[in-house]
Computed example of a mutant assay.
Amino acid sequence: MRFAPILALATQAVTTLAAVKGFNYGATFSDGTIKKQNNFEDEFNSAKNLVGNSFTSARLYTMIQGDTNGVIEAIPAAINTQTSLLLGLWTSAGADTVNSEVQHLVDAVNQYGTAFTDLVIGISVGSEDVYRTTELGIASNVGPGVLPNTLVDYIGQVRSAISGTALNGKPVGHVDTYNTWTNTTYTAELTAAVDFIGVDAYPYYESTKANSIDNAARIFWEDFNEVVAVDQGKPVWVTETGWPVQGPTMNQAVANVANAERYFQELGCDLWTGGINTWWFTLQDDQPVVPAGNVVFGVTGPGLPPPTTPRYDLSCPA
């Protein structure tokens, strides 16, 4: 059964035929090796050429290339493969890191010009930082976060830095969990400060709900529409969602290939046909081999470059 995003589409301005379709991409492999330009190019090309569907956008988490302290090499890889970008600036490591992230953002404009800026869909200032300051985030021991008012300051810093550059006017937003955005007494100021709201939502992890695959798409839309209800007129983008092909059972949620395919078919296809910018999690889990027992979300299996034959059917109804 498919669960249509009735409220979301009724209350959001969408571009039905132009929704961004992409994946999330980390800056390192699982062993800590830092990805180089050729690694990003391999990933972006594999995503574009997947059997059944083509993914032409990349969401990043940082602007910094860790081994050189230069601009992340995903940028020239995106230019060479014509992959659009949702840029990310890491903010949970403190003000000095944010200053460096912002400087690298400006450096990227100066280094690559409009060949880079024309590919930018938006700029996310942080990722799940506010969640990490909440009671649930602290209990989950997920590391340091950033308070909403500090993120508002960082967003202002980014706007100032790109003013007068070719990035001026690009949407500046923030990514966080759906239940962080709906905590309006905590995040209303942040919602007012952004141009877009990035939502991370995983029914697989919602173990306090009846979260079997039969209910997964419905749970997602309920989560998403709760954010839309408090979005202050800002567009809501799906920055992370997916279903694992391997991992522990979370309440009623079973991780396997069949359920990952069903989740994609019942949710992913509706997101894009509904005009909602979405970056799926994920093209491929960190390489070279994901240890047994880990939660594995990869649409493709192991291999460098990532294979273009996915684990399950990615085609969407016409």
Results as ranks from 00 to 15, higher is better:
294 N>R: 05
95 A>W: 04
31 D>A: 05
290 V>M: 09
31 D>W: 08
187 T>I: 07
9 L>Q: 09
246 Q>A: 13
55 F>G: 07
215 N>T: 03
303 G>W: 01
109 V>C: 02
266 E>F: 00
232 Q>L: 14
281 F>V: 01
94 G>N: 05
159 R>E: 10
206 E>H: 07
142 V>L: 15
285 D>Y: 00
52 G>S: 11
279 W>L: 14
298 G>D: 03
12 Q>L: 08
307 P>L: 05
6 I>T: 15
145 G>D: 11
297 F>I: 09
56 T>P: 10
83 T>R: 01
98 V>P: 01
60 L>C: 10
276 I>G: 10
133 T>Y: 09
197 I>E: 10
76 P>K: 00
155 I>R: 04
60 L>Y: 07
160 S>F: 03
116 F>G: 03
284 Q>L: 06
152 V>T: 15
28 T>I: 15
263 Y>G: 12
221 W>P: 01
93 A>W: 09
62 T>F: 03
193 A>D: 09
85 L>I: 13
210 A>N: 05
61 Y>M: 05
220 F>M: 12
120 V>Y: 04
311 R>F: 09
150 T>E: 14
195 D>R: 01
1 M>L: 13
162 I>R: 00
130 V>H: 06
255 A>T: 02
207 S>C: 06
49 N>W: 07
105 L>W: 01
90 W>P: 02
222 E>D: 13
204 Y>S: 03
278 T>R: 06
125 V>N: 09
72 I>W: 01
205 Y>P: 05
107 D>P: 07
200 D>Y: 00
145 G>W: 08
191 T>E: 04
260 A>P: 15
160 S>K: 04
107 D>E: 10
52 G>R: 05
